[in-house]
């Protein structure tokens, strides 16, 4: 009796239907992204037909709502970078040290408790962080530095820093864990202590993964909206002093899109110009981190 090895029509049809459905899902998110970029770009182009791009990028005054309008985005960019930079100062050391602890030092039981606890930090709604900053951290800051503004960049930096610790620690921990056991054994075999194994072998071998986690965390900090809108104030301010009120790009977008801005006006279009700037900044950082991650695969065999 022969065995039937011919292709069954129904199976072929089923396979191709499933393939199409999966493709549609994948295409959907891509299309949404393309749509967002197109809208951003169209309104931004309209904006830059009225405001010179040089003034936009180099101007030091951001006063789009005033009678005499100024569209220099530097105060907003500096506000965002001040918050992100401060957040980085908190999150990077704490994140990488927790990652080293979790991956190299903690026993299985401690890990099972600590890791989920750390990740809860990422699950707290950002609006809660905002009020935490305003009602808890700012009063503390004002105790230490009496001249601190009620709304200030420092409080926002601190909570955004707390918020992005899990991003740094989980991605760095993954990178540290991916370092082969054989490298650790080689170092131990040469008489290295645990600290030397961690700092001289494991961390350098995982360095690009760690850097990628830094970049992703900073890009999250730049894009963070709710906490900075609540805690950092809404005063465009080109300053490096974290105790002053500032406005970030994201906080401006919240402020401007709250309803007072008539559609089609120049003030309305500033939203998109700022949105585009923000998008390009975080996109740039994500691309850099992708590139760093891709390099990371080649670092050890």
């Amino acid at each position: 009796m022969g065995v039937d090895l011919t292709r069954k029509g129904s199976r072929k049809l089923g396979e191709s239907l499933i393939g199409t459905a999966l493709f549609a899902c994948a295409a959907f998110s891509t299309l949404v992204t393309v749509g967002v970029v197109v809208v951003l770009a169209r309104e931004s182009v309209a904006f830059f037909s009225e405001v010179s791009i040089v003034d936009f990028l180099t101007g030091t005054r951001w006063e789009p709502m005033f009678q005499e309008q100024h569209f220099g985005i530097l105060p907003l960019v500096s506000g965002s970078l001040l918050v992100a930079g401060g957040a980085g100062l908190i999150a990077l050391p704490i994140g990488i040290l927790s990652a080293i602890f979790l991956s190299e030092y903690a026993g299985a039981r401690l890990q099972a408790v600590l890791k989920p606890l750390l990740e809860i930090l990422a699950g707290v709604p950002t609006v809660v962080y905002g009020y935490f900053a305003l009602t808890f951290i700012t009063p503390l800051l004002r105790l230490v530095f009496p001249g601190t503004d009620i709304f200030n960049a420092a409080a926002a930096s601190i909570v955004v820093g707390l918020m992005i610790i899990p991003t740094v620690s989980s991605l760095s921990e993954d990178a540290l864990r991916a370092v082969p056991r054989s490298l650790r054994e080689a170092a131990y075999g040469l008489g290295a202590t645990k600290l030397e194994v961690s700092t001289r072998v494991v961390v350098p071998a995982a360095l690009s993964g760690i850097i990628a986690s830094f970049i992703l965390a900073i890009s999250r900090a730049v894009g963070e909206t709710m906490a900075v809108t609540i805690a950092a104030g809404n005063l465009p301010n080109l300053t490096l002093n974290p105790l002053e009120s500032i406005q970030t790009m994201t906080a401006f977008i919240v402020q401007a899109s709250m309803g007072d801005t008539p559609q089609g006006t120049l003030a309305y279009r500033t939203l998109f110009a700022v949105g585009m700037t923000l998008f390009l900044m975080t996109l740039g950082m994500n691309i850099v981190s992708q590139w760093v991650m891709a390099r990371f695969r080649e670092e050890y065999q």
Partner: peptide, 28 residues
């Protein structure tokens, strides 16, 4: 381990230069 050295089944050099691999033990 500083007096009793070990060589493993699979070559496991560090992702460093040839020189730094050899100098690792003396340095630590």
């Amino acid at each position: 381990r500083r007096h009793i050295g070990m060589v493993f089944q699979k070559p496991n050099p560090f992702p460093k230069s040839i020189y730094d691999n050899v100098a690792f033990g003396p340095r630590i």
